[in-house]
Design a protein around this nucleic acid. Structure first.
Lengths: 217, 217
DNA sequence: TAGATTGTTAATCGATTAACAATC
DNA sequence: TAGATTGTTAATCGATTAACAATC
């Protein structure tokens, strides 16, 4: 619950809304950084992101002052600070369970490393391949031994929904503390940090917005 | 902008927060329905979803009264009403662009139909297969003719990020009005309805929450 | 220094919760 | 009818925006 690295945070709980904006800030600042931009003001960020300068300053100040009056924010410092806040450079390791098309897509194309997780092993009942995207694929009966040996902090769940709950319990009992859950199965209440990717919810909100529009409106 | 099917909605704009909760409500009510439950109170929904009864009644009443005093809500009616609000039974059609692992995963395992979209064709530069999950895969040079002939309302973008913007413009010019965007490319400002699936943002928030926890805390 | 821009407090706005009369 | 539960208004809470003194 506490925040050793950021004592300022203990004052009041950071709201979920703020946390959800941090990755956007990071992405934008990294883009500036890649383009050789050395400094940016809250106004500049606001314009690029479609937010208010005030909100951005408030958000960043939840974690302490990264800026400098009269100057703005150093893109390099800001990028490093947000990365540190999010904890994406702590080197968390994860296993991926379920090497179907989705699991394979994540292993192959998605760069976990830059977002805070290193996949150290993938598991499936019947692995068709022994290696996907540079990650070794094991049969599921090797999981327990693997958890004991490597003690990964997290797991990515891309297996069939009806096997998700049992697997989550098994992973938790093996020491895993967080789950990136693609299965649409409710894994709340197990004492795990659970981040759901609810694709059908996302799609439904798209439909809603589409239905609110006149043709080409 | 207007809402022909739900004139109540014109009074005030429905907040994004409400819309994002509707799919959760629908999922839960459909689960009850599948289990043979015929009625549910706002209190029952609240308990099942971890929200307050008050909030649920407020949310639903944005769209008119679906309940009955002293009784609660008919699960069947409620399911049908939320489906109608979200527009997922309007039969929207979509093309999917980019049949890599992610595209294939979506075509094969994800049930678009139940979430409001029917995929009527998939496209890739070099399709390895001519048919995935019952959907015909075409080469990309057939896209324009396909758009003209079938006029799909939406598109799913699962192609490489550096080709996303050009493709979005091409789709828009071909009559597509909404994009389910998996590419992490900013497609705002093109006059399209865009729903982003930002996997790295999701993963970063997982890391944040993990970093806030003591081991097994 | 003067200008710019932050950090931070105060004001506003919107969303959630509480309360209760209406009514099935 | 009496009990239950909605629909809806009022109160509270939190998040966003505005303002400005501090300061680089």
């Amino acid at each position: 619950m506490s925040a050793r690295r950021f004592p300022e945070m203990d004052r009041r709980e950071i709201s979920q809304a703020v946390i959800r904006r941090l990755p956007r800030y990071l992405r934008y600042v990294n883009m500036l950084l890649a383009g050789g931009v050395e400094r940016v003001s809250s106004g500049g960020l606001a314009e690029g992101l479609g937010l208010t300068a005030s909100q951005i300053r408030q958000d960043l100040n939840c974690f302490g002052g990264f800026g400098q009056q009269g100057y703005g924010y150093s893109t390099e410092k800001l990028s490093a600070s947000i990365s540190a806040i999010l904890g994406i450079e702590l080197g968390y390791r994860a296993v991926l369970i379920g090497v179907g098309n989705l699991g394979r897509a994540l292993l192959g194309k998605f760069s976990f490393g830059r977002s805070g997780l290193t996949i150290i092993g993938a598991f499936d009942i019947v692995p068709e391949l022994s290696d996907v995207g540079g990650v070794r694929v094991y049969t599921l009966d090797k999981l327990s031994a693997f958890l004991t040996e490597h003690a990964p902090e997290a797991a990515v769940l891309t297996l069939p929904a009806d096997k998700a709950l049992d697997m989550a319990v098994r992973l938790r009992d093996g020491g895993v503390r967080a789950i990136w859950n693609f299965t649409s199965t409710d894994l709340q209440g197990l004492g795990l940090v659970v981040e759901d990717v609810l694709l059908s919810d996302s799609l439904m909100t798209l439909c809603y917005r589409l239905s609110q529009r006149q043709p080409h409106g």
